[in-house]
Amino acid sequence: MRNLTIHSSTHDYDVLIGSSLRHQLKDMVKKEYSKVLIVSDSVVADLYLEDVKAAFSNAKVSDAIVPAGEGSKSLEQYGRLLDKCIQEQLDRQSLIVGLGGGMIGDLTGFVASTYLRGIDFLQMPTSILAHDSSVGGKVAINHPQGKNLIGSFYNPIQVVYDTETLQSLPAAEIRSGYGEVIKHALLSDASWYDELKTQLLKNVTTEDLEDHLMAGIKVKAGIVEEDEKEHGVRKYLNLGHTLAHALEAELGYGAITHGEAVALGIAFAMRVSEHKLKSDLPILSYLEWLQLNDYPLHTLKSANPKQLVHRMKWDKKTVREEIHFVLLKEVGSPVVERVNDEELTEYLEKFLEEVNHIEQRN
């Protein structure tokens, strides 16, 4: 088992990574709770819910299951979970457990942060993607106008990452997770990025995965400990996300996974970096890596640049209606730059044309 402690402004919490940890929860959760609500989705619940319920045998345990997919990060499901908290009479000595991927962690954390002005919650990620979202205290739900527009900063008491649960992930979820892994490499370490760029995701081993998860969490931990509320360097973690969030909203939540959208958004951020900063970035080899690993470049074929720019202006990173873009001077050297609408539309048109040519060649 691997352990990393995250230092936040409210409390320190441990991230535990290892195999079969769901069966060891009783020894890991340090506080006694009289009531526990486990929130999961319709796919994960069938696989792991009973294991986690058994770990809290000394408490009154209830569960709430939401439909799988990004569409459940909604006001409707948020309200339904609050109703469940009230029905179960959870109090401030109760615990909410988020058992699932990034959607479950975000939704559950937001419920925990607002019910009774905040009760304890435990993150139990079951996706690679959630190595990013489970650390750092950002919790949120989506609005039809944009992703994560309703949320707060609220840290879990612990993150328990059972790598055994990752063995059931479909290919799209592995791609999704590595969209965030490669983002962390691009933000921090050229040699790690070069290593990942040679990786065929279908050949990733359990040992590779644990190494990559821990490395990614360390990158994020270092950034969020310096800037917890995103006033400065934490903005760098939004690399690729400006276009990604616009794509997710435009295509419909769930049509493309979050990490797949981030991976495509990173390619665009590289191109914008070349235009704005005259950066020399490995974009062609990065696009080849996306193709080799079946990232859905085809979803960009019918994209409308002006509509995507409109979506970007609703993004939570927009300030005074100006889009602030995370760019790269080089691998490991991110910056934030303002990009106006006209520039962005021009860059996006060129990028979409480039991607469509690549798709046509294949």
Rank of each mutant, 00 (worst) to 15 (best):
N3V: 06
L4R: 11
T5C: 10
T5R: 11
T10M: 04
V15Q: 06
I17S: 01
I17D: 02
G18W: 04
Q24R: 13
M28Y: 14
K31W: 05
L37I: 08
V44Y: 05
L47P: 03
Y48E: 03
D51N: 12
K53F: 07
K53N: 04
K53Q: 13
F56K: 09
A59F: 09
G71Y: 02
K73E: 11
S74A: 03
E76I: 03
Q77V: 06
Y78C: 06
R80V: 04
G101D: 10
G105D: 00
F110S: 11
T114M: 00
F121A: 11
L122I: 05
T126A: 09
D132F: 09
V135L: 10
G136C: 05
I150M: 14
Y154Q: 08
N155W: 00
I157P: 00
V159R: 13
Y161W: 07
L169R: 08
P170D: 15
A171I: 05
A171N: 06
A171M: 08
R175H: 08
L187M: 08
S188F: 06
D189W: 09
K197W: 02
L200S: 13
L201V: 07
V204L: 15
T206D: 15
T206H: 13
L213E: 10
G232V: 09
A244Q: 07
H245Y: 11
H245N: 11
E248G: 00
A249V: 14
L251H: 01
Y253F: 15
V262Q: 00
G265I: 07
V272I: 14
E274R: 10
L281G: 00
D294N: 13
Y295S: 00
K301T: 15
A303K: 01
A303L: 13
P305V: 01
H310W: 07
H310V: 04
M312F: 12
T318D: 05
E322I: 07
E322T: 07
E330K: 12
P334Q: 01
R338G: 06
V339H: 03
K350S: 14
E359K: 09
E359F: 07
N362W: 10
